[in-house]
Amino acid sequence: MPVWQAMYDEVESRDFLIIAVAQESRGVETAREFIEEANPSYLCLIDQTHQVADLYNMVNVPNAVWIDEFGKIVRPSETAGSHDAFRSMDRQDFSQTDEALDLASRAQATYMDAVKDWATNGATAENAYDVSAAKRHVQLPSESTSLAHANFRLGVYLRLNGKELEGDKFLAAAIDLHPDSWNMFRQAMNLRDIGQVMGLAADQEFFDRVDALGEKRYYPAPNIKGFPSEPGYDPKI
C-alpha cells in the first residue's frame, strides 16, 4: 500500500483514483488494521466474497485493471508489478538476496511508472491499450472457473455461518476446479488456520505448489516495456 500511496501522491491529476480492494473473507475487521496503519488517501474497499476476482477473472494479489473515464477496461487483469524473484527466498525466514530484492523493486518501479504515465496522460500513455489490444489481452473465464467461484462463495458463507466442515468441502472443490487461483488456495488456508507462517499462508505446501509451476510464472509478467524479463529463480528447483 505505501507504493500505491507514493504513486498517488505524485500524480497531480484529480481525474485519477486508486481503488484498492481487499480480498478478505474474514471481513472488515481483519482488513482494518492494515488500512489504518497505511492510512491511504485513496479508496479502500473490503470484498469478503472475492467478487472482484470473480468479475475480473483475477487469480492472485496484487492483480490490477486499468479502467478509463468511460468505464472501459484499457488494461485487463494482470499482476500489479509483482515479480517471481520471491521464489528464491528462504522458506523459513522469508529472507531474500539483495539480487532478488533488486529485481522485485525494479519490476515494481517499472510497473508503477507505467501506471503513473497513464494516470497523467490517459489514452496517449505508452502502456494504455487501444480497444483491439485490450481485447487481445483479456483472459476470459472457463466454465470450471465460474463454477469454482460459485463453490468458493458458498464455502465461505457456510464457514462463516457455523458450518466449517461443510464449507471446507466447497472450498476444496473450488481449488480443484481453479488451480490457477492463488486467491482461493491461500484464502482457504487462512480461513482454516492452516499453513500459516509469520502471519502468511505460505507453508511448505504453498512453496511446493509454487515450485511445481517450474518455468510457468506465479506472476506472469505484464506486457510493459522495461519490465525485467529474467525469472529471478531457478526453474529447475
Binding site: Q23, N63, W66, R186, G199
Partner: peptide, 9 residues
Amino acid sequence: RIFLTTWSS
C-alpha cells in the same frame, strides 16, 4: 481513470 487493484492480509 481508475487503477483498480487488489491486496490481502
